[in-house]
Nucleic acid binder design. Structure first.
Lengths: 413, 413
DNA sequence: AGTATTTTTTCGAGGCTCGAAAAAAAGAGC
DNA sequence: GCTCTTTTTTTCGAGCCTCGAAAAAATACT
């Protein structure tokens, strides 16, 4: 099972701790790092001077002299932006975008283009990714650090090893091996991640106070996605990316879902379902393939304006989400929620029904205490999440190990 | 956040690895331990001779000479039964039992008695536990190692810190602080655990091949309980023991549940629900407080014998369980299942309906591959689970640390 | 009885972290 | 302007820990 700790793991782990402390805090001093990691000052001193000489960290030159205290001033440590760079790719329905990001997290170059993903062969999808990444790397030229990692946030179900796109609403094809192809093309590790998991990862970095150890991100768009952080870790399935909240069953044998099954939460709360209930009035009608943001906003406006099928459609959506959350809360207790995507703009209409449904479930005891937050624009979140995923991999897997700690160190000295 | 690895943690962790390897395997040799832990032979040699001199491990005297190989024969290591002992307490509806178990896992003494738990004040429940543990410790006398840990498996929801019984069907009272009282009484750490979690823990030790990293134990009795192991760890809630499968929502605003809410899985699949559907025919009728095993077996026999309300009741139960599992599998992919308790004797009637329901959900793709296993007798499983929980705590928290590694070691030498 | 083989222990080397002390870098006080 | 105080950072020696190699131990084979 779990393996013993070798002597050389010790350094690797503690280097990882230091890098992680610097990435998390803003220019922490060595003393602060010692405090947060619990390691001694001398250890932090040794490790950080190693990392600086390897070009991974740098001392902040003009740290604002916040101190105004006596004594030697603290000198902040920061990530050396030129230590490396990563590529964050976001692939969604009819849209592909990518960016090169330096080691400190600044965007170097980016590109976005529209594609008709549902009508492209699987090969072509991968080719588009490869092409865009290639162009970005070429345009960035020799500036900054070498690209050490690529992360792709993609709508759909990925495998647990983050290598393939198992299934996605953006294409008719299954099992598309994005990672293998891109690794072969660029010679760096590639991971393929579910977009909602990346949204959760991004929220954690945007607001570490609210979204710390346990929270839930729900993407309300054409379908319903979820990113789940439990006990400080992204919750993924054992074989897939997991957390397919949209396909939990709300009503057995109920409304027709885009996935072909019946009664899924998505079949009540996805944009297509809300539109169908509001405008078609038949929950068994074939789901629309796509729906513009304006379409759904129009339904929301109508629902706000007067009672009628639109308002009823949002009631059903809120109810489905609420009962689904209630079932989840039976499994692992309530947690703060973030609603992301176009649907979040209409969340005000759904919220009372979500709360009413949760109140009827095991999560009901705390239903008033559960915090809801909305963020309409999911695109930057997906990119930030993929970026953080890639950067953290560089931190932990490459820089913590210390590329040839003896040989490279000797070269430098 | 996570804290750095201090120099002394290293030894503690590797000692823990060795102890754990010995507990898991049956009399492994030092060489085998080195292989499974990945540590060097010299390290294993040092650590194991320390552990032997501290009286935690012992060399097996007459290990069957399975080898028949040339060379120095391997000498198996085993846990020293006298190193310590633990108490495993199982508290269920109308029944309390406890046992003293030595460090090697052998039962030293045990006692069981019937109580009318629902009519006892909270204090009296705790008093009964204290009294029984006291009698056991007294009767065991000075034989064996000192009691270093107590674990209580109790039906109901416990808090995440395993200290209190938050809610339980066995009593009208909430927030009963079992751990505090018992610790005060016996001066050793006490943990209060959900009984189904202990069932899962026990299954892992009974059949480590089938129940390894991901599996689900479902207790089919008056209510429905669940113990969940995901990625090698017992899955608990963030604030409570979690995995309240029985109170996931099967049908919004559906049948009346024992918990007062509506539509819970338990309200269709708990013994009282099956009995109610079979014999009362009104899913809103007030649930019975208790039901004998014979009652439910009679319904099962009737269902097997002829079509009618009994068979229909089991169909509804299987359907509720199947859809609930399907919803869970949307979150974390399918896993092997063990059905435990009286209800498991009737599982043959439910199985086709469980599978049919799962097939209608996101878990349906693999519905045929999901393995079902039944074990009617839950009582020994609860005890074994509590025992393992307590023993592992002694392993990891007490013996791995090495009580005063310098001073005690010096005393021995 | 001697040799081959496998397991276990011993021993020295190298690495890592730690605590204490020293060095560095500022503000405070006169 | 100089010294003292305070705080941060580095340096240095000590103590552990793990590792690899070699030695020792224990058995089967010839």
């Amino acid at each position: 099972m779990s393996v013993g700790i070798r002597h050389d793991d010790l350094r690797r782990r503690n280097r990882a701790m230091v890098i992680s402390a610097v990435r998390r805090a803003s220019q922490p001093s060595r003393t602060e790092i010692a405090a947060t990691t619990g390691l001694s000052h001398s250890t932090i001193s040794t490790i950080s001077s190693d990392l600086i000489s390897e070009g991974i960290l740098a001392e902040a030159k003009f740290s604002e002299p916040v101190s105004m205290k006596r004594g030697r001033p603290q000198v902040g440590l920061m990530l050396d932006a030129d230590a490396a760079s990563v590529v964050a790719v976001v692939l969604s329905l009819n849209s592909l975008s990518a960016a090169i990001i330096d080691y400190a997290g600044n965007t170097v170059t980016e590109e976005t283009r529209r594609l008709v993903t549902q009508q492209m062969p699987a090969e072509a999808l991968v080719d588009e990714c490869v092409g865009m990444v290639r162009r970005l790397i070429d345009s960035a030229g020799a500036s900054g650090g070498a690209v050490l990692r690529i992360a792709i946030a993609v709508q759909g179900i990925t495998d647990a090893a983050s290598r393939k796109l198992l299934w996605s609403p953006i294409t008719r094809y299954d099992d598309i091996p994005f990672a293998d192809r891109l690794e072969q093309e660029f010679g760096v590790p590639v991971s393929v991640e579910n977009d909602c998991n990346m949204i959760a990862e991004a929220l954690r970095w945007r607001d570490p106070v609210r979204y710390r150890d346990d929270f839930i991100a729900i993407l309300l768009s054409h379908g319903i996605g979820m990113g789940l952080v439990i006990k400080g870790e992204l919750f993924t399935g054992t074989q897939s990316s997991g957390a397919e909240f949209g396909h939990m069953i709300h009503r057995p044998d109920g409304a027709l879902c885009r996935c072909g099954r019946r009664g899924c939460i998505e079949a009540y709360a996805g944009n297509y379902a809300i539109w169908r209930n509001a405008r078609v009035g038949d929950e068994n009608a074939e789901p629309l393939a796509d729906l513009s943001d304006d379409d759904i906003r129009a339904v929301a406006d109508a629902a706000r304006d007067h009672d009628g099928p639109e308002r009823e459609a949002f009631r059903k959506a809120g109810e489905a989400i609420g009962f689904g959350l209630g079932s989840m809360f039976a499994l692992f207790d309530p947690a703060p929620l973030a609603f992301v995507g176009v649907g979040a703009t209409a969340f005000d209409i759904m919220e009372p029904h979500v709360r009413a449904a949760i109140a009827k479930t095991a999560g009901g005891l705390h239903s008033k205490a559960i915090s809801f937050d909305t963020e309409p624009n999911e695109v930057p979140l997906k990119r930030e999440g993929a970026m953080m995923r890639a950067l953290l991999a560089v931190d932990q897997e490459i820089f913590a190990a210390g590329t040839a700690p003896r040989r490279a160190g000797a070269d430098v000295a």
